[in-house]
């Protein structure tokens, strides 16, 4: 971890109403690395990506990206910074009324006035990189889940970003697509000289490409280190998460009110437990 940090979080607090999501998070993302962020669903991983992209602002703490303090930047400054970031969304988020080609071309068209022939070349190059040059003319509805994810990936990197966010890129994909996406994440990161932050539950696949990892639980970072170090971690929480044990410091049972009889027989509130 000697390399210079591209992203730094310092004692970041964020809450939604009375409910704290992040309670003092410190992180350091070194330039050029793929850093994974793992944690339970609803734990605040997506929130953290949004904080780093400046789409949400923390209640307290500091976030620095490429040497700039997000809290002191104005709207224009954040937008300028964001043009050098790419995000692959959990549900691909392709524009449904645009073809694959136009989806990838969208950021280029909005930010630059390019010759149509140059634009074509740039877009097809990125589609080629994800293996979907042939699917350029297809609409999002005609793409399979894995293909959609790859088109979204091409769109996320079409501006040659310095920082790429991946929000659960493996979720809902077949094993072959998972392998393809993982390879692409590593390859694109190194080819573009970018830095990647990878949110995922898929321990196996994530550790095969990540250089460093953080584990988030209860609004705090409870473990960090290289994949090997994390696997060898003696933190019970980290072991429970990485090993996928149902019970441990994070309890299997959602706190019940009285006894399971009331939960089974009935009220709407109890029904929500499932």
């Amino acid at each position: 971890m000697a390399a210079e940090a591209l992203v730094e979080l310092e004692n970041v607090h964020f809450s939604r109403g009375p409910h704290p999501v992040l309670a003092g998070v410190d992180m350091r993302i070194p330039r050029g690395a793929i850093v994974s962020l793992m944690g339970a669903s609803g734990g605040g991983k997506t929130t953290m990506l949004n904080l780093m992209a400046g789409t949400l602002a923390p209640q307290s703490g500091r976030i620095r990206v490429a040497g700039q303090d997000l809290q002191t930047l104005d709207f224009e400054g954040v937008y300028r910074l964001r043009r050098r970031m790419g995000m692959l969304f959990q549900h691909s988020a392709l524009f449904t009324d645009f073809s694959a080609f136009e989806n990838v071309a969208f950021p280029l068209r909005r930010h630059f006035r390019l010759d149509e022939s140059i634009l074509r070349k740039l877009v097809l190059m990125k589609l080629e990189a994800v293996g979907l040059r042939g699917a350029a003319g297809l609409m999002p509805a005609e793409l399979s889940g894995g293909m959609g994810r790859r088109v979204a990936l091409a769109r996320a990197v079409v501006m040659d970003p310095m920082l790429i966010f991946y929000d659960e890129p493996f979720t809902g994909l077949d094993p072959i697509s998972v392998g393809i996406i993982a390879t692409l994440i590593r390859r694109l990161n190194d080819a573009l000289g970018a830095t990647s932050i990878l949110v995922s539950h898929d321990v196996q696949e994530t550790f095969s490409i990540a250089d460093y990892g953080y584990i988030l639980a209860g609004g705090k970072i409870i473990a960090e280190g290289s994949p090997e170090a994390l696997r060898a971690s003696d933190s019970e929480l980290a072991r429970q998460f990485l090993g996928g044990q149902p019970d441990g410091p994070v309890p299997f049972h959602y706190p019940a009110r009285d006894n399971y009889a009331t939960a089974l027989t009935g009220s709407a509130a109890a029904g929500e437990v499932i």
Binding site: T55, R83, P107
Partner: peptide, 11 residues
């Protein structure tokens, strides 16, 4: 998430 995606692309 299409609106968020736009926001992320600085549009």
């Amino acid at each position: 998430e299409q609106l968020s995606a736009m926001e992320m692309m600085a549009v």
